[in-house]
Design a binder for these strands. Structure first.
Lengths: 338, 338
DNA sequence: CTGTTAGCGCATTCAG
DNA sequence: CTGAATGCGCTAACAG
């Protein structure tokens, strides 16, 4: 408890140099002659010196931390991004400060405040609902990058997957398998300013239909909330519409899971009676019965890229939007028709 | 960029008091007369003053942060705990610093180092593989609590669910449904010092059998690695043993999911041919086809309790082990026999 | 109760 | 290239 922490001064003494020299070799700044440098390094090793981060921060103004505001732990895709961020930061001198906004604007704002109080050097928003104008404003003060959310008014510092294209291709895959009546389970997000991922998927779905000479049937488009349960409900809604459909495209795997159960409840076999596809490629998707055809977004890679981006930003480089390619994962939940 | 941050001195001036008085009312320490206190508070509000955390930390020695070392983002149970921790910390003055050990001792150790470098006031291990001796040692220096891992040699600062009891009851449920040959998919953890959750489940399973006058059949106990894939492999292993079994108890839902797929591949129906139960109650469990009977651990509550525990510890209170009750979630994956 | 003062440990001018 | 000196913003004795 009482054991005095060794400071820069201790090693300065042991190495027979001044504390500023020590500081210099530690911060790798201006040149120091080899012998002195080595003496310092030696002393550092001998005494197992660990710099006091607070003193460093206080003196330098840098906190060496990056604030990460996510929306829900537990969501596979977001968690993948978080893991990627952590990995991307691992070999830097930065640590991550986390907060969970829980899709609640107020919480998100408070989290942002504690982060600015802690003088984070960089900020990462994983999804989120804060308006673009507001984000642009914070971005002005703190290096900020937004991941997993496509900002329309800002075309930099934003990392996301091409949801439109992926949804287009996924729908096309269904069409090429002979499906003509393809239902879609979408979801409405709270923030209106941004074109959400889910919305892009809806657009991709529609466009694919149009390009194939099929006209989207509004009654085959139902709305969930991205949760599993809503997927099951969506089946009921679809059934009430009394429209025929041979395939369902759920905007995310969670709802696809729910839809699968809903179909089962109603006695529909997958894929014999109805084909089903999702989006995200959660692990559960690969282990559904039958395994689900879906789209994989490179979450980890996106997370890493995000970390790299903030780091770059902090170092004064400018970073442009980065769009990641998603990948169609074909499994057994789709049947050919005719 | 250049705008000078307002400091304690600014508000001291504006309130016509000394900086120490300001510090006093802010830190709510010793008494200050009402008028002065209010003047200070007013000034703080007027100038929208935000204390510099680094200066505070440097001067006080407290960082107002708590280090959380988890093992894998993305695991539903752990994520629930994390969410709980965050919630539990929300109304305190502490922030959480996160690191992902990824079940890798080296990474875990490094994370611990950066945390001590950052002088975290408290430490939370969510699972983890560091030896109990080592943990005890850190606990000596920093208030530490371990959650979701049952330490045998330390009976304080440890929060976990009663896995033995839950597994016992789950197995018993199977027995009462008429099952006599119950297979179990377990897993071996890397750290040997601790009795792992999974091991406790295995013990509960065996004890239930014994207490029912059935003797555990070693050939019906196969080993996975907690991942989905290993559940599917486990089915193959079980089939190779050529033992009859009417039910399978997977030590976690992930493996149950895999087992479900494995069964499907081999043409077994659930629960008609084989009953299946898991452990954890991931969301996916409720949406399996058919929905999975499993055990729910109160992850969020455990997380909150963990946060409370560290906070207590920091405030000098002693905290004893807290054991949470799990809950049997009966769904349709189990059939009555005979 | 309140103001003064001395650090906390380090980065960073500024001379030399 | 290097050392001495200054201050980052705040807390905690220390006197009044």
């Amino acid at each position: 408890m009482a054991e005095r922490r060794i400071t820069i001064e201790d090693i300065a003494q042991k190495a027979n140099v001044s504390i500023s020299t020590v500081s210099r070799v530690l911060r790798k700044s201006s040149g120091v002659t080899a012998p002195k440098r080595e003496a310092v390094l030696q002393a550092v090793a001998d005494l197992d010196y660990r710099p006091n981060v607070f003193a460093q921060s206080l003196a330098s103004g840098q906190s060496m931390t990056i604030g990460v505001i996510t929306q829900n732990f537990g969501s596979p895709f977001y968690d993948g991004i978080l893991a990627g961020i952590l990995q991307g930061l691992e070999n830097s001198d930065y640590s991550a400060l986390f907060a969970d906004g829980r899709w609640d604007r107020a919480i998100e704002r408070r989290a942002l405040e504690t982060f600015t109080d802690r003088r984070v050097d960089g900020l990462i928003f994983v999804g989120g609902q804060l308006s673009e104008a507001f984000l642009a404003e914070v971005g002005q003060k703190i290096p900020t990058v937004v991941v997993a959310r496509e900002l329309v008014s800002i075309n930099s510092n934003c990392i996301f997957a091409d949801n439109f294209k992926a949804a287009y291709e996924l729908t096309n895959y269904l069409i090429e398998a002979g499906h003509r009546n393809i239902a879609h389970i979408t979801a409405k997000m709270h923030y209106q300013e941004a074109v959400t991922d889910v919305e892009q998927r809806l657009r991709g779905y529609k466009q694919a239909l149009v390009d194939a000479g099929l006209s989207p049937n509004p009654r085959l488009i139902v709305e969930g909330n991205l949760q599993e349960q809503s997927g099951a409900l969506a089946i009921e809604m679809l059934l009430m519409e009394k429209q025929t459909f041979s395939a369902i495209f759920a905007a995310n795997d969670a709802m696809a899971l729910g839809a699968r159960l809903g179909l089962y409840r109603r006695g529909f076999r997958v894929p014999d009676d109805v084909s089903l596809v999702g989006f995200d490629d959660e692990v559960a998707a690969a282990f559904m019965v039958p395994p689900l055809t879906t789209v994989r977004q490179p979450a980890i890679a996106m997370g890493k890229a995000t970390a790299t981006a903030v780091l770059d930003l902090i170092n004064g480089k400018t970073v442009t939007n980065k769009i990641f390619e998603s990948q169609l994962i074909v499994r057994e939940s789709v049947a050919r028709i005719r």
